[in-house]
Amino acid sequence: MRRLLILFWLGLAALPAAAAVEVLATVPEWGALARELGGDRVRVFTATTALQDPHRIDARPSLLARARLARLVVANGAELETGWLPVVLRESGNASIQPGRDGYFEAAALVQRLDVPHRVDRAQGDVHAAGNPHVHLDPRNVLKVAGGLGERLARIDPDNAAFYQARLAAFTSRWQAAMARWEKAAAPLRGVPVVVHHQSFAYLSRWLGMEELGALEPKPGVEPSSGQLAALLQRQRERPARMVLRTAYQQAAASEWFAGRAGIPAVLLPFTVGGSSAAGDLFGLFDDSIERLLQALR
């Protein structure tokens, strides 16, 4: 018993002394970015996986514990995490990660958001007053966020500032090269009409020039009924989409049904890091997404 206690206190003492910066990332894409930029100087805990709907997460006890330990919270923002992050931050007893402090970083704040509603009314479903929050599927946004996050890491952990700056520079040049590659490969997708399950891909569509004809969800966050899907099918006859897109965390039934009736492929896109076996990091995420889209076009 006594030995256990000693171990416990030693463990407590060792925790803050550990060199790595504890990072709590709310979603896998920003967790992956923190890993890219922080290397072995950060220890990243990601609150959600690619199989979880980031709108619907419980304020789990483990998240409280991680928020308590964190020196940096990397959130997506634009109201994506309103269902759980505010309460986790408040209850964490951690002053340095409160919004407005250096320990709180919000990715979506750094980019121009699409679909900002002119009128915020819940009759429109789960609308976000700050616009569509799923900003990461435009790699140009990822680059902007990387710039901000690299700078933030350097500010939080000034001893390693040069390290983060070097990693950011290396990431930026690799990313720009990859972007050129992706844009070239994805050229056939320009102008391709698609239907989406939820407005998860607005930024991807805009970047690649795909035309989103509509969503299966009648209102954001509301699952479609069979009647509503049938109405969509009617529209499909007038203006045919080439494929139906959904994320790894959305149920397959609606898009499979629609795709089957319309005779077009239902495409599962990884949506974020970990959403498919090939999407092991941010580069893999875009490689795999574009590959799957092209596959569906063939």
Partner: peptide, 12 residues
């Protein structure tokens, strides 16, 4: 008054 222990699991 609440105190959260700095542990990977919640201890409050």
């Amino acid at each position: 008054l609440k105190w959260l222990a700095p542990t990977p699991m919640l201890v409050e």
